[in-house]
């Protein structure tokens, strides 16, 4: 686990891996420099996803992950986020401000009336919460990690995942199909690791724009746990980013969370002391 602090994490992993919706939460930014020239947003004429994958790689699936990575690389991000948790006819809305640097420095501050002042700090795989009503900092520990972040469909465990998909999974393209009018390559990622949240992931990747549009997460038993849909993409500072993401819990009836981002700023100079216990309790 320690090496997570040093491990560089791809943007593909940000978008596809771990929390998936993390980029919607704004929770994670890729380590690395500025955008690759290939990252220019393109509405691109539909073409074969396989044809757009770099041919240099022996495995076109991994090459596709790399392409997504380079297309969406940024060093830091800040934005205003909103989550809309829906359970049947009941809807709970929350707002927050997010700052992230590298792959493992994240600070969220909730701003909706019910949770105003509640903050979350993630450093590597370590998550701390601050609740102003009790003036208490709480380290989110093993048993709490599987609970949803502030009641959402995104667990703390998923928020804390920092390892790149490239490092944890083997990948193969299992078919090509249309999704929302876009030709997509369907990638199946599998992992033999025992400490991983989802041993199997299936991704629908719009290869011409180098963005995933849908991801399915499976348990070791093969049961579908969650499905993530990218509902909106916007060009931000030369990169095409998913700004609205929906997580649908397959195990809970009529349960989903919509994450959306606005006022996005990339590659900011975020101070070190923003990601400290002092900032958490300020």
């Amino acid at each position: 686990m320690k090496q997570l602090f040093q491990k560089k994490r791809s943007a593909a992993a940000l978008l596809l891996g771990g929390a998936l919706a993390i980029s919607a939460l704004g929770a994670q930014a890729a380590t690395g420099g500025t955008a690759s020239p290939t990252a220019t947003p393109s509405s691109g004429a539909p073409s074969s996803p396989l044809a757009t994958a770099p041919s240099a790689s022996a495995n076109p699936a991994l090459a596709l992950l790399d392409a997504i990575d380079s297309a969406q690389r940024y060093s830091s991000i800040s934005y205003t986020g909103a989550m809309e948790i829906t359970q049947g006819s009941r809807v709970l809305k929350k707002q927050y401000t997010a700052y992230a640097r590298g792959s493992d420095h994240v600070l969220l501050e909730f701003t909706n009336p019910e949770d105003r002042g509640v903050r979350m700090l993630r450093l590597g795989a370590s998550i701390w919460m601050y609740f102003p009503s009790e003036g208490d900092t709480i380290r989110i520990s093993g048993s709490l990690m599987r609970q949803g972040l502030m009641g959402s469909n995104l667990s703390y465990e998923e928020v804390a995942e920092g390892e790149s998909l490239r490092a944890s999974y083997s990948a193969e393209i299992i078919r090509e199909e249309m999704l929302d009018g876009r030709p997509c390559a369907v990638l199946k990622l599998t992992s033999s690791k025992t400490d991983i949240s989802y041993p199997t992931r299936v991704l629908w990747v719009d290869a011409s724009r180098k963005v995933p549009l849908k991801i399915e997460l499976y348990a070791r038993s093969g049961i579908l746990m969650k499905t993530i849909y990218v509902r909106d993409l916007q060009p931000i500072s030369g990169r095409l980013l998913p700004i609205t993401i929906e997580i649908v819990d397959a195990l809970k009836k009529n349960s989903k969370t919509l994450f959306s981002m606005r006022d996005i700023k990339l590659d900011l100079d975020l101070a070190d002391n923003l990601f400290t216990m002092q900032a958490l309790t300020r």
Binding site: L123, S126, W128, S133, E134, G135, D136, T137, D272, F275, T276, M277, Q278, T281
Partner: peptide, 20 residues
């Protein structure tokens, strides 16, 4: 159970990112 407020004075220092 939950903690309540109390009249107090507190001075905190943060020697590292996750210590106080």
């Amino acid at each position: 159970p939950q903690a309540g407020g109390t009249p107090a004075a507190r001075v905190s220092a943060y020697p590292s990112a996750l210590s106080r």
